[in-house]
Design a protein around this nucleic acid. Structure first.
Lengths: 202, 202
DNA sequence: CCTACCGATCGGTAGG
DNA sequence: CCTACCGATCGGTAGG
């Protein structure tokens, strides 16, 4: 079936682009993984760049779909911001390739990504920033927080943490075997603590 | 001169690998930029992978050289940690390609990078973590900070901020022309505020 | 025998 | 969707 193959190609391409980079993956390699010929791939996606954009579009569309759900958790107060950050971590952690792909695209095509992030993220960032301002007004949140910059910093940090969860383990983890999971958990706990501590008054 | 050509090749390779990725740059492209033939490049670096490792080694050696200098600033107290974070930002900002290269290598070769980061970074991370513990002992720093995880989180955040300084501008910046510089400065200020606020008691 | 290269070309594979 | 290919370029090596 055509739609099935096209979907499988896009899915495999997402995974391989995320792990080895756009230039590091050949159309042949993608086709082989799916079990079709390169020519079949080129029937569904007439060029490598078309495939790249299809992959990217799907990541953003998934994001646009999930973001409103995540934001429902945020209305006001302490625990809500925590829930949002947790949701953000979970969003990228359930599919770390999504985070890696975004970081790679950000490095490879900064201008295009700036545009796409502005389009897809801007309304939500401004909305959450308004919640922060509300928190500042009622004295729950430190007055010197820069709302928009804070939200972007948290997103950057979560993205970086998930996509390169390798920074941590080697440095934190002891030589023992149990160190990897524990180190990842420590890092994530500290991320949540840090983002909260930088926001709320005690 | 031979040493000169080898050095120029390594320098150009650093820049191009950082901007387009290892797989995205041909030996021909590097050689052309330097003004030598590809064969001359291969005389100095017998394979592309040898060149990759030479580039990476230089970045780490630069890091090993500068880190002790940065750490001299840290003894104790409020302003010292701030100075260290500022130095870290400056270190990567004066050559953003360094940050981009590290992030790319982290995505391309997570295992190798985990090992290299552990070797090169571990002693310094543990040292700064000890300063954090000292701060906790004298009641200057929040007791619930995870010292090692905190230090790594700050490094991750600085690295991510510098290497993908594109996240910000598109979302924060207005359509006007003056927005880019201002947005970058806002983001950096919030980074410094956030790392401090998450550490020190008020 | 060394160094620092050159012009030409190797076998394979890239995207299309 | 496949067979049959292309112009070009890939990383790497030959003799001198």
């Amino acid at each position: 079936m055509t739609a099935d193959n096209a979907e499988q190609i896009r899915s495999v391409a997402t995974q391989l682009f995320a792990r080895h980079g756009y230039e590091g993956v050949s159309l042949q390699a993608i086709a082989e993984r799916v079990g079709v010929t390169k020519q079949t791939l080129l029937y569904h996606f007439p060029s490598k760049d078309v495939l790249r954009k299809a992959v990217l579009d799907q990541v953003f569309s998934h994001w646009r779909e999930r973001l409103p759900q995540m934001l429902e958790a945020v209305t006001s107060g302490h625990g809500r911001f925590d829930a949002l950050t947790r949701e953000l971590v979970r969003f990228f952690e359930t599919d770390a390739d999504r985070a890696r792909l975004l970081v790679r695209e950000l490095l490879d095509n900064p201008d295009e990504m700036r545009r796409m992030l502005a389009e897809n993220l801007r309304p939500w960032v401004l909305l959450v920033a308004q919640y922060v301002r509300e928190g500042q007004r009622i004295g729950l949140i430190h007055a010197d927080v820069d709302p928009e910059a804070y939200v972007l910093t948290v997103i950057t940090l979560v993205l970086a943490n998930v996509s390169t969860n390798g920074i941590v383990e080697g440095v934190l983890g002891d030589s023992g075997g149990s160190g990897v999971r524990a180190a990842r958990e420590r890092q994530q706990n500290e991320l949540l603590r840090l983002t909260k501590a930088a926001l709320f008054k005690r």
